[in-house]
């Protein structure tokens, strides 16, 4: 066990170092599906030339649904202040992926919805827990990210977007 702890300690050192040298994250080259079943390249999410908010959610994650509701409620007001897109990436697997369409329709969310059924996109961005939100600037760099959601957290996202 002592060897295992020793190895793990070294990995933590490398991890800390990598955190320092890796100042920005870029979108990986991954393909996911939209609600029509069409394949979407993740890189094309930035084609509109405006900042993009990417958030990972599932139909069974209560804080995720709260976060998407909060964005939905303020969508029109925020669009008047700053132009941006929201991409809500569902990490629901085969158990609940077909429910995504019913959730989106019933809630009338005005966002782009993507399906990441085997979690390739989620894994590529090293998302361990959801909700996990990223703000991407027009150059494709992650300028803000956050794990979890508490009521009111969405205000920080607007502040970041207005600063871009």
């Amino acid at each position: 066990m002592s060897i295992d702890v020793y190895r793990l300690g070294w990995l933590c050192v490398i991890w800390l170092f990598a955190t320092m040298v890796s100042a920005q994250t870029r979108l990986p080259a991954i393909q996911v599906n939209n609600l029509k079943g069409e394949t979407v390249n993740v890189g094309s999410l930035l084609d509109d030339g405006v900042p993009t908010v990417i958030t990972f959610w599932t139909t069974v994650c209560k804080p995720c649904l709260q976060e998407l509701d909060a964005f939905s409620e303020q969508w029109e007001d925020w669009q008047r202040e700053v132009k941006f897109n929201i991409v809500a990436v569902s990490a629901d697997d085969a158990r609940s992926a077909t429910k995504v369409r019913t959730f989106v329709a019933a809630n009338e969310w005005p966002f782009t919805i993507l399906l990441d059924q085997n979690q390739d996109f989620k894994r590529a961005l090293n998302v361990s827990v959801i909700p996990h939100l990223f703000v991407i600037d027009t150059k494709g760099s992650v300028v803000y990210s956050r794990i979890g959601y508490n009521p009111g957290s969405e205000a920080k996202v607007l502040e970041i977007l207005k600063g871009l």
Binding site: I14, W15, A18, S22, T25, N126
Partner: peptide
Amino acid sequence: LSSASPYLLAQHHLSGGF
């Protein structure tokens, strides 16, 4: 990694999780 870090920042992309 230390000696390579400027190059890493400029040309390459490293990401990870713990």
